Amino acid sequence: MKKPLLFLLITFLVTLNTFSQETKDSKPAISRNHEIKLGAIKLLSGGIFEVSYEYILDTNQGFGAALLLNLDTGNQYVENYSLTPFYRMYFQTKEDYGAKGFFVEGFVSFFGGKNYYYTYDMLNTIDDNFFDTSVGLSLGKKWINSAGFVFEFKVGAGRNLLNGSEFDALFKGDLYIGYRF
């Protein structure tokens, strides 16, 4: 009597393990919805830290925000800080492409920095702080491997609206390295 009961218990445990749900770690990278990226060129060349988060809505669209901090304010980069929310549309030829490939991005950038003015002898500079807002478009391409690592190239420009910056346009772009989770 005990042997059939033991056999049924073992069978039940084996089938329970077989039909259990997938864990989050076993999901393929294409079906994950969150992505975080770091701007590599700005960080390596000028001490400018840019991190970006994107939520993938489906295979064709996503939205998120980027935060930029200029850690070395002596480099005369236009932005000392910025917050840039964005929306992306992905264009591809396959149905299951998974929010990667060629994309078009619309963004609004809220940023601040310093305008640098040179005196007539070019030896002295005068700087003043500003805040501005920019609306623009970017183009780019994103690659993702099966483990979830992301490589992205993006370039874009936006029109400054408040005339706080000495420039009429803001240029965005970098090579981004990240992870989809």
Rank of each mutant, 00 (worst) to 15 (best):
residue 3 K to Q: 15
residue 8 L to R: 13
residue 8 L to I: 09
residue 10 I to M: 12
residue 10 I to H: 11
residue 10 I to E: 09
residue 13 L to K: 14
residue 13 L to Y: 15
residue 18 T to C: 06
residue 18 T to Q: 08
residue 21 Q to P: 07
residue 23 T to P: 07
residue 24 K to E: 12
residue 25 D to A: 10
residue 26 S to W: 11
residue 27 K to N: 10
residue 27 K to Y: 09
residue 27 K to C: 07
residue 29 A to R: 01
residue 33 N to C: 05
residue 34 H to P: 05
residue 36 I to C: 04
residue 36 I to H: 02
residue 40 A to N: 09
residue 41 I to N: 11
residue 45 S to W: 13
residue 46 G to P: 04
residue 47 G to R: 02
residue 53 Y to E: 03
residue 64 G to V: 03
residue 65 A to Q: 03
residue 68 L to G: 03
residue 72 D to R: 04
residue 75 N to K: 08
residue 78 V to C: 08
residue 79 E to A: 08
residue 80 N to K: 15
residue 87 Y to T: 05
residue 90 Y to K: 03
residue 90 Y to M: 04
residue 92 Q to V: 05
residue 93 T to R: 07
residue 95 E to V: 08
residue 100 K to N: 04
residue 101 G to P: 01
residue 102 F to V: 04
residue 104 V to Y: 02
residue 106 G to S: 14
residue 106 G to Y: 00
residue 107 F to R: 00
residue 109 S to K: 00
residue 109 S to C: 07
residue 110 F to S: 06
residue 110 F to I: 11
residue 111 F to R: 03
residue 113 G to M: 03
residue 113 G to E: 03
residue 115 N to L: 12
residue 117 Y to W: 12
residue 124 N to V: 07
residue 125 T to W: 11
residue 126 I to E: 14
residue 128 D to H: 13
residue 128 D to A: 13
residue 130 F to Y: 15
residue 130 F to M: 14
residue 134 S to H: 04
residue 134 S to Y: 00
residue 135 V to D: 06
residue 136 G to N: 05
residue 140 G to S: 08
residue 140 G to A: 09
residue 142 K to W: 02
residue 143 W to H: 08
residue 144 I to L: 06
residue 146 S to T: 11
residue 151 F to L: 09
residue 151 F to D: 01
residue 161 L to D: 12
residue 162 L to D: 15
residue 167 F to R: 13
residue 168 D to P: 14
residue 169 A to I: 07
residue 173 G to K: 00
residue 175 L to N: 01
residue 176 Y to R: 03
residue 180 R to K: 12
